[in-house]
Each structure stands twice: as C-alpha cells, then as structure tokens.
Design a protein around this nucleic acid. Structure first.
Lengths: 250, 250
DNA sequence: GTTCCACGGATCGTTAACAGTAGACAAGAT
DNA sequence: ATCTTGTCTACTGTTAACGATCCGTGGAAC
C-alpha cells in the first residue's frame, strides 16, 4: 500500500476499486449508503468511467447492490447471507488446505510459518487491528497459493476480502485464537498431512463463524428498507453539501 | 440497426456479455483472436462503453485476457488451466451436491428429475448439441439452487459456462454417459443421501475430465506465444476487410 | 547485409456531454 | 383527509470525442 499515487502504470479502475474497498472496510461507507457515481468520481479525482467499472466489480464481488436504474447501495449483510458466506468459505478453504498439504514446497512451508511468526510478533507489539487483518488476508492467500489452483485462489480472494469487511470491527477480540488456529493449519500443511490440515481449517472457519454470530453484529433486516431520504431541501435551497449519504472521505 | 433495437428493459452490457459468450462458445471467436472494442461495438450496434464493461466481466470470468495497453485476447486453455478448472469444479460441485441432498424439497427433486427426463427425451429426438449443452448447464445450476447458497451458485455458474465452452466440440460424444451420471446424482439428491450424492457428483466430474483430456483437444502452449499475426499483408494492400482476426458474426 | 532510429497507424484509457427514466414533492380532485 | 395527477430534480445508461501509448514499417547509417 505504498505510494503509487502519481504515475498510474496500473489501470485506473484498479485504484478506484481498491480505494473503495478501503472505504468500505473502514466503514466510511456504511451499509445502506447510496454510492453516487459522480460524487465518487469527484472525490477520487477521476471521471465516471473508471468508477462505473469499479462499482460493477464491487457488485459482482458482493460488496454492493446495483439496482437497474437506481444506482449502487452498500450491502447490509443479512444473517442468511452471512451463513452462506461462511459455508462457502468453509468449502473453499478446506479444499485449499487439503491441496496445499499435498503440494506445498519447503519454501511454501517457510512462508506460511513466517507469516504466523510475523503476525504473532506484530500482535505482541500491539500494532493496529487493520494490520492484523492484513496478515490474516495474506495467510489465507498464501495457503491458496500453495494449493496451486488459480480458480480456487480467486474465489478465496473474494471471500477473504469480504471476511475482512465483516470482521473489521472485531479483529482485536479474536486475533489470539485465530492465530493459534492459523499456526496449527500451517504446521499441518507444512507436515504434508492433507486430511488433518483440511480438518483444522474447517474448524478454524467454524470457530470464526461462531465468533462472528455471537457478537450479534448481523441484523435480519431485509435487503430493501434503507432508502435514501432527502434532507428536506426540496426547492431552491441547494445546500451545497447536503449529506444525504455519508460523505466519502473528508 | 440490426434488429434488437426495440425496448431494452435490461441493461445493455448484459446483452453484449451474453452475445459474446455465445460467439465464444460457438468458436466464432476462437483462441488467440484479438477482440477490438470498436469493431465489436459496431458489430453489435452499440458503443464502446457497454462493450468495455462486458469485456472486463469476461476477463474476470476467465474467458479472455486483458493486456494493459493492448486489448482483449481470447484465452487458449493450457493443460494446466484445464486441470485446475476440473479441480475447482470438483470442489464446488461436490459440496453443492452434498448440501443439495440435505436441503432439497420435493419440488426441487421433481425439477431435477424433470430436467433429466427432458434431456433424455431431447437426446432421443436428436436435438442439436448446443441444446443438450443448455440442458447440462440447467441441471448443474439447479443442483446448486437446491444447495441454497448464492455464493456457491455464482461460483458454479462461472464454472458451468466455461465448461460449456470447453465441451462445445464434443458434447455429442459424451452426452449419454453424462446424462446417466446426472440422473444418478439427481436420484441420490432426491433421496436425501448427501454422502452418496457428493461421491456421485465427484465421479461425474472426474469422468468428464478424463473424457476431455482423452480427446487431446488441449494444447500445452505456454500462455504467451499466441500473438496476433497479420495475414502477411503489410504494405499498401489494405483489403478493406483484412481478416487479421476472425470477424465476429458474418 | 545488418542494425538503429524515426515516422505513421491503430487501439486503448479517459474524459466530457446527451437523453431517458425513477422517485419525490406539491397542488388539485374526490 | 386521502388519493390522484403533474411537474421537477437527480441520477443512471449511453454515446461521442480527445489524448497517450504501443506495434509495425520504412529508410538511413554503419
């Protein structure tokens, strides 16, 4: 996440996509918010084109809902969706762990355990939660890298990012348990024990699910009710900055 | 100007996406072909905007490669990629079958078996291969519908479409075996036997993989070498329609 | 004959402008 | 008072045009 702001050797839509992901994870854009293309474009200093493309990708990845003639709305995960999410994650991650244990090289093993060490050290040093979340994402990504399957990797990436989104508020509280489980998974993969690695990963995902559901952060709101309501400025009084939805990034 | 310009209650990019998928599956656009935005736009009677969006979706779904400043190229599946594909498919479909067997209602069961009946009937009547492929896609889709998990459904959709792409040339030769296996899966799901349904589905995917690999249709070309080569018409002779890449739709 | 440089064409990435529609508010009819 | 209707704004979907970049080609120098 270093500089790379000025020269864009990378397509612009990527920047927009990542930036929006950050805003989503940080809850600067919260569930129900209406994402207006023009506003985001102005905010990020680009035009509507790249923003549109990024929004469509966010839609496909399950972050936002794109209603046909109405625009983009940040998703409010329902309990149903959360359960489906963890179920899917369990399927993908478990298989990935199994394959990883069959195929991981010594270098892979070192990388996995290295991430665990780093994370533990950083945790001991008390780094911000966001950074721990970054470690988690890297860990799961590395497992899927070891599985040597690009499709599973891509599925896993999607799930991993969304997981980071879900867990953003409570990373700190579950970090110790999570990293103990991570290390166990890593050691079983490194030892080349597919069945046990798969089981350990499955357990890890289930534990995470339970932790999440216990916090009751999830609401059973149906997908519709949150609409954009005007701030009662109907005629003439165009208050330049009417915060009809939370502003993106001060 | 070419038909299809009536009322489009559906966003235009969807039409473009589906149309391009058809052209890909029909091999009108073959591996290595260079997809030029402007040309496609003219061909489909729309502008570059929607075409761009459709191309990006095709890229993320693994149909084409999008090189940064160069454009879109139809993917030539390498053996590596095909094996990864079947591996991923096995993971997703097996789990979906297992969940489907746990959750399917009588209506679901009827739908599954109904598709099998339809397919068998159509096969006996000798319908075109493309239609059988459509039945196959519907069957797998229905299984994942029974699994009641939207994420798995979406993953499966992607895989299913690509499967249809791979198998387009040889649907006919494997249809009878495939549908026998489909029926067995359907019956086990309908009977509510998760373990056996999963095993049957796994077997089905493996059989399909073997059938595919046996045909040797897959080439071991590394991912780069296929570049767009001109038809050796370098200077002056701009034959208005130089088929530097296969034209889209006569 | 071979290598290097410069020009030209083609194509992508991006931006700005146009038209059509969905939702909301206000006035009028029942 | 409630429902209907007219109008108005804001936003999306789409189109057209601009600038930047890369590939290929041709000529000149060695």
């Amino acid at each position: 996440m270093s500089g790379a702001d000025h020269i864009h050797a990378l397509p612009l839509r990527e920047h927009v996509y990542e930036r929006l992901q950050e805003l989503l994870i940080a809850r600067t854009l919260g569930p129900g918010d209406h994402l207006v293309e023009e506003r985001l474009a102005a905010e990020l200093g680009v035009s509507r084109g790249p923003v549109r493309e990024a929004l469509q990708r966010l839609h496909r990845d399950g972050w936002i809902t794109l209603r046909p003639r109405q625009g983009a709305f940040v998703n409010q995960p329902t309990r149903q969706q959360v359960e489906e999410f963890f179920e899917a994650r369990e399927v993908v991650e478990r298989s990935a762990a199994e394959l990883a244990a069959q195929r991981c090289t010594p270098e892979d093993a070192a990388a996995l355990l290295g991430i665990c060490d780093e994370a533990d050290a950083d945790w001991a040093r008390g780094v911000p939660a966001q950074q721990m979340a970054g470690h988690t994402a890297r860990f799961h990504r590395t497992v899927m890298l070891c599985a040597r399957n690009h499709l599973l990797l891509e599925f896993g990436e999607q799930l991993s990012q969304r997981s980071r989104w879900f867990f953003a508020p409570l990373v700190s509280s579950i970090a110790p348990r999570a990293w103990a489980e991570h290390r166990e998974v890593a050691e079983l993969i490194a030892a080349g024990r597919p069945g046990e690695a798969a089981a350990a990963m499955r357990l890890h995902v289930e534990q995470s699910r339970d932790s999440y559901l216990d916090t009751q952060l999830v609401e059973d709101t149906p997908p519709e009710p949150v609409a954009f309501r005007r701030t009662r400025a109907p005629s003439g009084s165009r208050a330049g900055d009417a915060p009809r939805a939370r502003r993106a990034r001060a």
